[in-house]
Amino acid sequence: MRLMPELSLQTVVFHEPKPGAPDSEWEDGAGYRAADPGLGRPDRLVVLDGATTAYDAVHWVAQLVGSFVGPDGPAALTRDDLDGWFGRMQERWAAQPREFHNIYAEHKLQAEGSFATFLGCDVHLLDREGPHWRGAALGDAVLFHIQGGQLVAQLPTITADGFGYNPDGVFTRPSERDRMRSRLAFEGHRLQVGDVLYLVTDALAHWLLCAAATGTDCWQEVAEIQHPRAFRRWVAEQRDNGMKHDDVTMLRAEVAAGDVEVLVLCR
C-alpha cells in the first residue's frame, strides 16, 4: 500500500482598499476554513468583490464570506448546492431588521439591493482520488493555479479584455437567482506539493493577465510578497503603472508537505 504524503495548505490573505480610502471602505472580502477530516470537509477558500454601486456591499460581502466558510455554507460546490445557498443568503439578507434614515436607502435596498462577484474553492488534499481543487465562480474574481511557475488552470476563463463594470455576481434580489444559477462557472485541477492557488479580485486579476501576456514573470512577483506593507507598496507601484484603481484582494494558498505550524492571516 502506498501512503500519501501528508499535505497541508498554507494560506495568506492580502488586501488593499481603493487609493486613499480607509480600510472600512474595502468592499472585497476573503475567507478560509481549514479542512476537518472528521466531518469530511475540505479546506475552503473564498474571495468576493462587492459592487461599489450596490447597496451596503460591505455587509453583503461579510454575510456571504461568513456563511460560505461557516457551517451553513454549501455542502459542496455544485450548481444545486450553490443555488440553495444563494436562496438562503437572500432570505437572511431580507430578514435583517433595518431602520432607514431616509427613503433613498429604503428604495435602493428594495429596488436594487446589493451584489458581489463570487469565487469559491474547495481544496481536497486527502481525497482518495488524489489532491485536487474544485471551484465555482460568478463574475470576474479569478482563481489562478500555478505549478512550477506556470499557469496550469484558471477559473473563470476570462481574458484581459473581458473585465467590465457589470459582471455577474451574487445578488440579493431573488429575481436574479435563476440567472445566477445558470451563469455559474466551474473548474477543477489536480494539485501537487509546491502548487499555489491565487484567488484575486478583478483589478489584480486583470493586471496579472496583462502581465502574463507580455511575458513578465508576474507569478514569481506575487509569490515573493510576504507582508501586508510589502503588498501595499507593490499595489501602489502597479497602480502607478496602470492597475485599475479599485479594491485589491489576493488570497494565496500553497500546497505544502507536512503540517502547517503557523497560519498567517494578514490584514
Binding site: Y55, E99, F100
Partner: peptide, 16 residues
Amino acid sequence: LFELCVKSTKVHDAPM
C-alpha cells in the same frame, strides 16, 4: 433627482 439620490446612497445608516 430621485434616481441620483438613490445612486448616491450606500447604506441605511450613513449619510448620502
